[in-house]
Design a protein around this nucleic acid. Structure first.
Lengths: 347, 347
DNA sequence: CAAGGTGTGGGTATCGTTACCCATGGCCGC
DNA sequence: GCGGCCATGGGTAACGATACCCACACCTTG
């Protein structure tokens, strides 16, 4: 350990001495606890300011709260997560809470579990998991130990809260849009679930099933074409290459996420085809980059900021003692841009 | 506090009882400390596995290490940061360390300081700050208290380590490339520094100065045109709009970061101009999306994974006791793509 | 064979904070 | 006027782990 001229931290005892009161009194002021006179509060606050005292979160964790919310991200490449995080921070910051993030490292449930455990070991007061691939039983175990909000899954649970967008509505919007444009050979790129059990709760499953349902409802069951890769650029590229190799070729590709749509655009271009001339492409998430003129991707917009804010509010409520489970759903909207158009040869 | 059927955590005492040894012995096994026989290690490990024990990081923090590295990110929208983080994780993971991230919330030094303090309060063993806007004095204060690596700044410090790419080389590559293509009216979009002091250490400053220097060296000093906004899509859009309004219009725009280049592309397109027909555009960072056929942005590649790995290595070394300061520099390379071409009217 | 080294295990104080409970004094109501 | 309530402040024992030091057995060496 480097101990050069590392000066000692200011502790609650220093503050207590300086203000001529007990550490208990200081602690009460810090926590806004009951039983503190206005004079006491002022005196202690003055000492805190004077000494530049900050509570030691690790010490707090031994007895009380850490005022920390842990966020589990699958990775930090998806710009949509940034909106969620901004909403979360906006909500919990004023209450004195700090968000810390850990990367789950892909879609491996083992890695994800390790990452959640890292948060639990650090004694966070609440956990927000974003689109976790974990089994529901594991999520419930986590939720049983720490207030938890799960974002982006359609499970219903009694021990944790859910925040999600209505993926069924979103996927329907896209497929109906493409069909309305005149497309019939519409393909879909989805993400594999490496779960061992039923994955009906995963958003990629909902999006894929809805695609199949809407196609079927329109009598297009024979044109269903799925590529099961992943919601990444690589996945979109790989999936599109496979779909484009089919005969007859699809005239539209609905990628389950914008990230995958970017890869799709690259594959289409590489195949010497144009968007939307030869192939229409649509995504899901409405990431900022999708708005750029050069990409101009038709996509489904879900309000990440609201989802993040809500997740924060639900966590604070649970930390304060709520035990009933809540489910909050956002209705998405379709944003049509230049990446989708009627198929060649349509009227 | 929710205390429904929250079962007690397995502690080191439980493990010690179960293995019929002292807690000290268990602690030694956990830390791989000296003075443990092979038999003892096996016995304790068995008890740990059997009980599913995990050390309580907060309790550890009171006396020893937390095995946690804190990462300060300006925000999580820049995909380049993901590469850095992947490199870091790859390096520190096998050593038993976990990375936690906090968002600094823009370029406000106050917010940044708050975020770093949050890490310090959580007793992380080391801190990696990515392109911080903090004053050098503050960074040194932090480095004096916790092993610190600063990424993306050109300061030289005796108390923290630096990891950076040679921004002078990178910027020179871009400007020379554009000049070689035949451009003369080359503009640059840079990021404002809200620092009160000299900002010569900030990478945006180096990139901007180098741009000016190379222009001057080629006798193009009269054509220097700077837009001072920020390294974001919005900043690039805004900056490009201003630059395009000039008379005569520039024929090439060098955006100091890919994110800003995306905004530039949007502004160029919106102005009814084409890339690279009317305007060449180049960026810096070589983000993955820049490789997409639809964007195909000429950019400067800096190897984020290596930078992240190196930062991790340096932090581990410092935690182990190194006190001398180290500076690690990566030499960037230029990746030319279709967004740059000779100006209209050039031979 | 004594003296000292070495390898291994354990006892205990301690980190900074809060939960829990007790002490005190003023005030109220009967 | 007295019992009891309330508001306020403080004392103290934890929380779970590790740093530090000591105890002991066994081995080496002169």
């Amino acid at each position: 350990m480097v101990t050069e001229n590392r000066r000692r931290r200011v502790t609650i005892t220093d503050v207590a001495n300086h203000a001529q009161v007990s550490t208990t009194a200081v602690s009460k002021v810090l926590r806004n606890a009951y039983g503190v006179s206005e004079a006491m509060r002022a005196k202690v606050q003055a000492a805190i300011d004077e000494l530049g005292y900050r509570p030691h979160a690790a010490a707090r964790a031994m007895r009380g709260r850490t005022f920390t919310i842990g966020v589990l991200l699958p990775h930090i490449r998806n710009p949509f997560f940034a909106d969620i995080l901004d909403g979360l921070t906006e909500q919990i910051g004023p209450a004195g809470y700090q968000a810390i993030m850990v990367q789950a490292g892909g879609t491996d449930p083992k890695e994800e579990r390790r990452a959640v455990d890292a948060l639990v070991d650090r004694q966070v007061d609440g956990i927000l998991t974003i689109a976790p691939a974990l089994a529901k039983a594991e999520l419930e175990e986590i939720g049983g130990g720490t207030p938890t909000v799960v974002l982006g899954r359609h499970d219903r649970s009694a021990v944790y809260d859910s925040v999600l967008d209505d993926d069924e509505v979103g996927a329907e919007l896209v497929v109906e849009h493409l069909i309305a444009l005149g497309h019939r050979r519409i393909a879909h790129i989805t993400q594999a679930d490496d779960g061992r059990g039923r994955a009906t709760a995963l958003l990629q499953t909902i999006r894929a099933r809805t695609y199949e349902r809407v196609m079927t409802e329109h009598g297009l069951a024979d044109h269903i074409a799925l590529a099961v890769t992943s919601y990444t650029e690589e996945g979109g590229y790989e999936g599109a290459k496979r779909l484009l190799a089919r005969t007859p070729r699809p005239t539209a590709i609905f990628a389950g996420a914008d990230q995958a749509a970017y890869g799709t655009l690259a594959a289409v271009h590489e195949a010497g085809l144009t968007v939307p001339g030869d192939i229409s492409v649509a995504g899901y998430d409405n990431a900022r980059i999708s708005r750029l003129a050069h990409i101009s991707l038709t996509s489904v917009d879900q309000d990440g900021a609201i989802m993040g804010r809500t997740a924060g509010r639900l966590l604070l409520e649970r930390i304060e003692g709520r035990t009933s489970a809540v489910r909050f759903s956002v209705t998405p909207t379709l944003v049509t841009r230049r990446s989708t158009a009627p198929p060649a040869g349509a009227s």
